[in-house]
Simulated scan of single mutants.
Amino acid sequence: VSDSLVNTDQFKLTSRDHVETDDGEEVTLPCHLSPATSAVATTISWFKETECIYLYKNGQVTERSGYEDRVSLITQELETGNVSLRLRDFRESDRGYYICQVIHGEQKEEAAVGLWVRGGKCSITPVMFLNT
């Protein structure tokens, strides 16, 4: 009988395990609402580990010191549920795990994505096989 209380606007977040980039490049950390529903009325937070580096709430944007003018959402794609974060001018200190958090009403969903240097220490090429 509690069916009437179930929120019909339930969504999940989809992302990728990790993305790779090079110094100075622009990279997109993928995150999408599934099913594809508008994220305009949601609160979108992006964390680098535990620090909130980007907050979108009620159309207002807050960026953490050190990330100003380097991080942004693709605002024209919020309508289709794209809450991916663009990061410009990648630097070594940007490596690590990022968490996308979307809050709508009572629902809070999170997805994590790793950001690695292309061909760097986290490369998936096993070094021991390079010389065989």
Results as ranks from 00 to 15, higher is better:
residue 5 L to N: 12
residue 5 L to D: 15
residue 6 V to I: 14
residue 6 V to A: 15
residue 7 N to T: 00
residue 8 T to W: 08
residue 9 D to H: 06
residue 9 D to S: 11
residue 10 Q to W: 04
residue 13 L to T: 05
residue 13 L to N: 00
residue 16 R to G: 03
residue 17 D to T: 00
residue 21 T to Y: 02
residue 23 D to Y: 11
residue 33 L to N: 08
residue 34 S to H: 05
residue 38 S to C: 06
residue 40 V to W: 05
residue 42 T to C: 09
residue 42 T to G: 06
residue 44 I to P: 01
residue 47 F to K: 14
residue 51 E to H: 04
residue 53 I to P: 04
residue 59 G to Y: 00
residue 61 V to W: 10
residue 70 R to V: 08
residue 71 V to E: 11
residue 73 L to T: 13
residue 73 L to S: 11
residue 76 Q to L: 08
residue 79 E to I: 06
residue 82 N to K: 01
residue 84 S to V: 08
residue 84 S to P: 12
residue 85 L to C: 04
residue 88 R to C: 12
residue 88 R to I: 09
residue 89 D to C: 00
residue 89 D to L: 03
residue 92 E to N: 01
residue 93 S to D: 11
residue 100 C to V: 07
residue 103 I to V: 15
residue 103 I to Q: 15
residue 104 H to Y: 12
residue 107 Q to G: 09
residue 108 K to W: 08
residue 109 E to P: 00
residue 110 E to C: 07
residue 111 A to R: 10
residue 113 V to I: 10
residue 115 L to E: 06
residue 118 R to L: 12
residue 119 G to C: 03
residue 119 G to L: 01
residue 119 G to I: 00
residue 120 G to N: 02
residue 124 I to L: 12
residue 127 V to P: 15
residue 128 M to I: 11
residue 130 L to A: 12
residue 131 N to C: 02
residue 132 T to A: 13
